[in-house]
Each structure stands twice: as C-alpha cells, then as structure tokens.
Amino acid sequence: MGKAFGAVAGVGAVASLYAMKRSWDPLPSVKAAGFTTLDMSQYKENELVVEKWRGKPIFVLKQSKEMLESYDKNMSQITGKSTAEMDKKRLIKVGDDYFLICVGLCTHLGCIPGYNPDEKSFLCACHGGMYDDTGMVTKSPPPRGLDIPPFKVDGMKVVLGETSPEYEKMLADGITLKV
C-alpha cells in the first residue's frame, strides 16, 4: 500500500517538475523573434556598427584592404604558411567584401567591448580583455574569441539566426561556439 502510494506520488512529482521546467523555457514568441536580416551594402570600411539579434549586440565590421593584408601577414607568421594560402577563417564573405560579424559580448563575463578604429582592436573595460579586428583574443582573461552567430549569406543580405554550410564549417573548425 505504501509502495503503491509512493509510486503514484513519485510519478506525479516527476510530472509536475517537468511541467515546471517547461514553464520556465523561453516562449515560442521569444524564439520566433530570433532572426535578424542585415543589408551588407550599407556598411563602411573599418567603421563598427552595432546591430541587435536576440537582444544581444552584434558587431559588424567591414574589413578594409589593409586590415585584410595585416590579417594575412599575422596568420602566416603564426601558421608558417604563405600569405596567399590564408583563408579568412573568422570573416564572412559577402559579394567581394569581408566582414567580421560577431556577438558583441566579451566571452569572459558578457560585457560589451569598445572598438578603437585607429588601433583596430576591441577593449573590454570590465576586466581588460582585448581582441583584434577579427575578434580574436589578444589579451586575456577572455577564454576565446568573440562568438559568431549562426548566419546565412543571401546575395547582399545576411540572415542571423539561420545556419548555413559556411557557419557549420566554422563550428566544425572550432572557430566559434554555438550561440
């Protein structure tokens, strides 16, 4: 009798806990609002624009020619390959231009880093973390580069929140974590 009562009560308890868990989940309306479309023809080189996706700030930084050159030079120093072999791992190609599109929250504890166009670097004022113009960490404590949101390139437009083979490749290569 006691066991039967316990079993019924146990099932009820688990079921109610599940209902409580589900009630705390993000609402469908919140999830459905999770897409942002950017028109990439409007951005200027080396000028940071902050967009918004899922309530988070999104950094969009169009790369200038010299930024791309210095990126290739740095990467070839690190990897030992020639500059011509470099692919722009963290950058997104739209038309003929390259863009950094990333979540503008420091990967340490989520403050918003500021961009310095002269130094071409990001500095997080909370704990002093720094990133270069492709969002890679140049000074700790951030544990990894700025995260890249799921994206899909569609002509001159980029849809954030929708995945694509390019984004899946970034995930597979460990360039970014899923956000």
Partner: peptide, 26 residues
C-alpha cells in the same frame, strides 16, 4: 552567465534561467 559554468558552456541552462537569450521580460 556564471551558470554557464565557464568551460562547460551550459548556455542552454543560462537561457532557461532567463527565459530568453538575454535578460528581458520573462
């Protein structure tokens, strides 16, 4: 964000606690 447990990256847990991707109405 502390509930992502650093290297464990439990972002789903953080979003569950918030009920949204960032602190918002929920």
């Amino acid at each position: 964000n502390l509930f992502s447990m650093g290297g464990l990256h439990l972002d789903g847990l953080v979003e569950w606690i918030r009920g949204d991707y960032v602190p918002a109405q929920a």
